[in-house]
Design a protein around this nucleic acid. Structure first.
Length: 703
DNA sequence: AAAACTCCTCTTTTT
DNA sequence: GAGGAGTTTT
């Protein structure tokens, strides 16, 4: 592909952003302004025009899904193998570095990665031991996490404290927590980044190696980076300063997780000579949607001023609709969707319903089901969070890392093998005394006479089981999972549903390397689910980030819901809620509905709700208030037509046919939607599982 | 030691 | 309004 093709279909600002490759660059990119496109094209430009190796460009995205999409796009631009390139989330990239380099006493590169659940269970364990009210575990975990994301290790925190009040207790828990992690040879999410930064700081030669390795750094969703991540970037680029960050302060919705919008402001200070560019042309939404969302977001005081524009025209007005109850709200949304669908202009997949909190999905699901409309709830309790999956994975982790105490606690008596709580607590005590792992403690006690012979037998059997898993040379993660599932006795104890889930896990691990599989599982989130198929999408506003839909409904525009009641006091909190609302609105391409209701069941109580303050910011002339569905039909008198049979002039692929992908090899088409050039397919590749691909970009080959 | 039961908490967002 | 933890029962 020539340079010209690379630069075609770009506006002058986008082109400028791509060509500017010397020195630090900050791109403020409004919603729908082609952010991802700019990064993909810039990557390709660096390779094609600047002759950089794809492996020497370090690219960070916010989610795994975003990085998969990025790889896909870049691949289609470059037509070059980018399998080994550094495109991923901060967490996955730091993991990759630490797996190679970890030289911190107490850790080795077989470390386990603890997710939020593991983190919680460890904190609880410690609180119990310290006799601190256990219900505080979430708050404690959050504090520890935010300390880590501000690069404050347990020692630093201990020495910074004045020694009074709860902070002292927190410090103790923190020290113990970190100690326990180290003893388990385990890292939590925050450690992945914090320890990489510390590694770089303590080992200039390692840092230098990576500085030399990467000649350009690209950062997507820069507004969502936290302090440690920012430090990481500063370290990595301190030598050459070739870094491009791209973001939108108006779309910063993870402040509560330590994301620091100020990184955008400090960028120009920390990277002297930084250039600032703006992308202001919106390619997604109608003028009405832009005007309304712009009016709302402009109420936030601390923001970089932007003026988004579009050449798409005004389009339909934004619809606002207020209902008596949340059930009515749900019902009407279902009706409206059905009607629009029947008119034939939209598929189900063109609709999305957003809400602030997950529990709102319920009424909506009921209503959609009632109307017989197909839907899918995104970001629901992830497959990987379910008990049976976490259990089976814990066997793998423990087998690879005998120090992994959290995993051991999880499975030592699961399935029940007659090892009592009393036995376990003696082992815990002994382990603490000797300062060794639980697994090693068990092995040691087997040589002594501290337990009765029955207990000893049971423990011996457990140790043998695990050591057997460790010693066996499995050819793939699937094989190992199969072995674990059967030999551990876990398969017999599970009901059908759970067993089926494990089967699914096993098939998804087919042909994968065990360590890679574990990493992927640990860093996987509910946002990385396979999408596709003709479904209405239901999701939280947070999950909506980075997506777009022709028709969007934002529900629950009520005080206490959006903005959420916990955010009502603080000005900053309200500003964040407003940004959340803004992100939701700017996902819409053609039609935007804003709804709310006077009565809503939030947990047990049926509550009276007031309209959201955000509704007051909406200019009247851009929106259309709908009192009820008949009004809506009066405005849009278009007769209800039967849906035109979609013509499929050249459906390139059909489900079941075999295809070859340049990166992932041969796979089987699972599902198809759309036709011709616009066709999207999901393909099951043995190497990585189900992938959704756009035929236009994917360079598939029919077999 | 395992199953059954009750009580209780937590109900925002994610790598 | 559910799932988990802890307690009691078998």
């Amino acid at each position: 592909m020539s340079k010209d093709v690379l630069m075609r279909d770009l506006n002058p600002q986008q082109r400028e952003a791509i060509v500017c490759t010397e020195g630090p660059l900050l791109i403020l990119a409004g919603a729908g302004s082609g952010k991802t496109k700019v990064i993909a094209h810039k990557f390709s430009y660096l390779v094609k025009a600047k002759r950089l190796s794809p492996d020497s460009i370090f690219t960070v995205t916010f989610t795994n899904k975003a990085s998969d999409e990025m790889k896909e796009r870049i691949y289609s631009l470059l037509e070059k193998d980018i399998n080994t390139s550094w495109i991923g989330t901060f967490h996955s990239q730091c993991n990759r570095i630490l797996r190679r380099e970890i030289k911190i006493p107490g850790y080795n590169n077989n470390f386990s990665i603890y997710d939020e659940g593991d983190q919680y269970s460890l904190v609880r364990h410690i609180l119990k031991e310290f006799k601190i009210h256990e219900a505080l575990y979430k708050g404690v975990a959050t504090r520890i996490s935010s300390l880590k994301s501000s690069l404050t290790g347990p020692e630093e925190f201990l020495s910074s404290g004045d020694g009074f009040g709860f902070d002292e207790k927190l410090a103790k828990v923190y020290v113990r927590y970190q100690d326990e992690l180290k003893r388990s040879n385990a890292l939590d999410f925050d450690d992945l980044i914090m320890l990489t930064v510390k590694l770089f700081e303590k080992n200039p030669r390692i840092l230098e190696k990576y500085q030399n390795m990467f000649s350009y750094i690209l950062v997507d969703d820069f507004q969502d980076t936290n302090y440690v991540q920012y430090c990481f970037l500063k370290l990595l680029t301190s030598a050459h300063k070739r870094i491009c960050v791209i973001g939108d302060d108006d779309q910063s919705i993870y402040r509560f997780k330590g994301a620091n919008v100020n990184n955008i402001l400090s960028f120009e200070n920390d990277f002297p000579g930084a250039k600032l560019m703006e992308l202001e042309q919106n390619y997604r939404s109608t003028q009405s949607i832009l005007t309304v969302s712009g009016a709302v977001i402009s109420q936030n005081s601390e923001r970089k001023h932007k003026k988004l524009w579009t050449d798409k025209g005004w389009g339909e007005k934004v619809y606002c609709c207020w209902f008596h109850t949340y059930e009515e709200e749900a019902k009407y949304i279902a009706k409206i969707i059905k009607e629009l669908y029947l008119k034939g202009r939209y598929d189900y997949k063109d609709f999305a319903i957003f809400y602030r909190i997950n529990l709102q999905s319920r009424a909506l699901e009921d209503a959609l089901r009632e109307e017989g409309l197909p839907y899918r709830v995104l970001g629901n309790v992830s497959f990987y969070q379910s008990k049976e999956i976490k259990d089976v994975v814990a066997y793998l982790r423990l087998s690879l890392n005998h120090g992994d105490n959290v995993s051991l606690r999880r499975i030592i008596n699961c399935p029940p093998r007659g090892i009592s709580a009393a036995t376990l607590s003696r082992i815990e005590h002994e382990a603490k005394k000797r300062s060794i792992s639980l697994f090693d403690t068990i092995k040691a006690t087997l040589r002594s006479d501290s337990f009765s012979s029955t207990v000893k037998d049971r423990l011996t059997e457990f140790v043998k089981l695990i050591e057997d898993f460790s010693a066996t040379k499995y050819r793939s993660a699937a094989e190992m999972l199969k072995g674990v599932f059967e030999k551990s006795g876990y398969s017999e104890t599970q009901d059908k549903e759970r067993a089926r889930n494990v089967e699914e896990l096993i098939s998804s691990a087919e042909g994968k390397e065990i360590k890679d599989f574990l990493d992927r599982v640990s860093l996987f989130t509910s946002m990385d689910e396979i999408t596709g198929g003709d479904y209405i999408s239901l999701m939280t506003l947070h999950s909506a980030k980075g997506l777009e839909f022709p028709v969007v409904f934002i529900t629950g525009l009520e005080e206490g819901v959006l903005p959420y009641y916990k955010a009502l006091e603080g000005k900053d909190e309200i500003a964040e809620e407003r940004r959340l609302f803004y992100v939701g609105m700017t996902r819409a391409k053609d039609v935007l509905w804003l709804t709310g209701a006077s009565k809503r069941r939030l947990y047990t109580k049926l509550q009276d709700q007031e309209p959201s303050r955000f509704l007051r910011d909406i200019p009247r002339n851009c929106c259309q208030w709908i009192e009820n569905i008949t009004d809506y039909q009066k405005i849009k008198p278009a007769p209800v037509k039967r849906k035109v049979e979609p013509k499929r002039p050249f459906a390139l692929y059909t489900s079941g046919c075999r295809v070859k992908h340049p990166i992932w090899g041969i796979g089987v088409v699972h599902d198809c939607f759309g036709d011709g050039d616009d066709q999207k397919v999901t393909v099951n590749f043995p190497s990585i599982g189900l992938k959704r691909l756009a035929v236009k970009f994917a360079n598939l080959e029919k077999m």
